[in-house]
Amino acid sequence: MSSIAAVVAPSDLVEVALGLGDDCLILSYRLSEWTAHAPEFEEDVAMANLALDLLGQARNLLTLAGELEGRGRDEDELAYLRDDRQFCNLLLVEQPNGDFAVTMARQLFFSCYQVLLYRGLAQSSSPALAGIAAKGVKEATYHLEHATLWTLRLGDGTEESHLRMQAAVDQLWPFTGEPFLTEAAWARLCDARVVPDLQALRERWQAEVRAILREARLECPEELGRQRGGREGLHSEHLGHLLAEMQHLHRSHPNATW
């Protein structure tokens, strides 16, 4: 059996680590937008915790991507000095917070994907990815529990909360297919057992999310959504606004610390 280094192209690993890191970074930023605006003080802290978990994962993944790339870019340079076309996060995570139901639907869809992904990555033949995933899977599992409870509570709650939760699911469903699209780099890494098979993940995601939605008395289409483009840098208009705010300080005052 040949060594991993012989069969895995570093550029493939960079692409995958960047994509997963960008997912965490952008969703972390979205969640942090709730700080001081959440419906309850308790929920305010809860969402800040989710954001911090994801920021930690983003730092690890972007640092790894920078090291593998070998062009001297660190986590800050990758986070703050790329333009929207160079970000390869999923369209799902850049979607605006909307009302609380939209934020929780987005979290349910993403965290379920992330739990399944990290469980697979924890078995990766890449020790660096396996380490990040093993740590992240506990965090993602809690995020999923949190989002699941809210989905059940709102979906199976009052008439108003049910309508809003259903509207949130309808609004975000078009973005549910993109996480499971297999790019060329992913396919090669999958063959080398560095990353898990997305088709298997897709089946399990469908089963788990549909079971939760059913219990919450919520409906969803038979097919997963078809919106795509995030992984190739083709984003919705929302990402540009997010980056303008997120990157402003670093671009205005390079390497500022406090």
Partner: peptide
């Protein structure tokens, strides 16, 4: 102490706070 709608939410909030 904290506010929560039910025991599950109370435990999650306690964990977070």
């Amino acid at each position: 102490s904290l506010h929560a709608a039910d025991p599950e939410m109370a435990i999650q909030n306690a964990r977070d706070l």
